[in-house]
Write a protein that binds this DNA or RNA. Sequence first.
DNA 1: CCTTGTGAAGCTGTTCACAGCC
DNA 2: GGCTGTGAACAGCTTCACAAGG
Lengths: 231, 231
Amino acid sequence: MTLLRTSRPARADRGIPDATVARLPVYLGALAELADGGRSTCSSGELAEAAGVNPAKLRKDLSYLGSYGTRGVGYDVAVLRHHIARELGQTQTWDVVIVGAGHLGSALSAYHGFDARGINVAAVLDTDPARIGTELAGVAVRPFDELEDVVEEFAIAIAVVATPGEAAQDVADALVAAGVTSILNFAPAVLQVPETVTVRKVDLSIELQILAYHEQRRASSVEAADEEVAG
Amino acid sequence: MTLLRTSRPARADRGIPDATVARLPVYLGALAELADGGRSTCSSGELAEAAGVNPAKLRKDLSYLGSYGTRGVGYDVAVLRHHIARELGQTQTWDVVIVGAGHLGSALSAYHGFDARGINVAAVLDTDPARIGTELAGVAVRPFDELEDVVEEFAIAIAVVATPGEAAQDVADALVAAGVTSILNFAPAVLQVPETVTVRKVDLSIELQILAYHEQRRASSVEAADEEVAG
DNA sequence: CCTTGTGAAGCTGTTCACAGCC
DNA sequence: GGCTGTGAACAGCTTCACAAGG
């Protein structure tokens, strides 16, 4: 915790671009697969294909972390994994709290693959007495009232909101008051939080609506083409 | 289905920008709330706040759909809802198939709020005999083998992949072969599909890793500030 | 007067193409 | 020779600031 790093690399001033940060976990996953497959080294082309991105983009992304490749050879899988994991904060385990023990909260608690990514579900909270005391994937559901205790007990910085939309803002307010600084919001609601708090939103229904838009476009362009042929 | 639209607005040539399409469902949700609250009209400022975006961005987004506001007044809530819903293809109901009846598949089947957005879960498929025949939110889980029948029966264009990562690519291949052209992928895997197919990916673990990155940055900048004070 | 609609400026992210280095 | 790392060109998105118009 008391690493001295007086002269951190110059580019760290404003950090890594958001778009790059969003891809680093994908690269990490691809590297894990390569390592499982026995590969100890790989080129930007191979890794880019496994991650589904353009090789130039991959190299530029990695260049924000430093120069960990070898020209003419490629990247050492283990070394690169280490550096990406470190940049993402995976040298420690992050305890998170999930608020809402409904279907989605249950699914999240049971999600395999958190452990390997440095994420631990420390607690699940709910207001419904019928759910409190039940167990989800080995974690007991606790009353929402205990939020402050839980945040303190596990030094929690990251919370997941998996409540109905109506409850989400109140939950977010309570999370912020308790000291949480990052929120992953699954509720269909736009959360208002202080700008010191990071929010990411995932809305299942929105994702499908976006796909429906593309389907509709396809349908109407086919129709237009038909008309052209017919006309 | 046989709407004639010979001269669609000129900008439709290349369609609406992706970034805008991704926000339209958010605007639609905000408009629904305003309508529920009895509002019949609203300004770009109000709507922008409810949607959590900059007002200029909102106006530019809406301008891609046409000029449906009134200068000096604002937008008619009902009119705007209509036009956005139409653009997103919500004049019809989209039947979707969910592949994978595990925790996530169950949560998705039970998700309220699809109906109001023109989404209907027509079928849930799984390969596990223990799950086949069980019922999820009123829909029977059917064998994965029946994919082609289901796609044909409901004229399905959109599918949701909620399987483990290992199965995802095989499932995607089968979906594409069956004629599905849009896939929402929840599995932790990068899907390879023909470029005629649209894929969107949601990875729960990736979202948390991104938040962990921000937390780590916060932690190390606090540390750096401490050093500065101490030094 | 008020709010929309939009050129233009600025910023962020992507891609290219090649110099640098093993 | 081959692959990385990166400046420079490009594309797309956001924001500004103001003209247009009720």
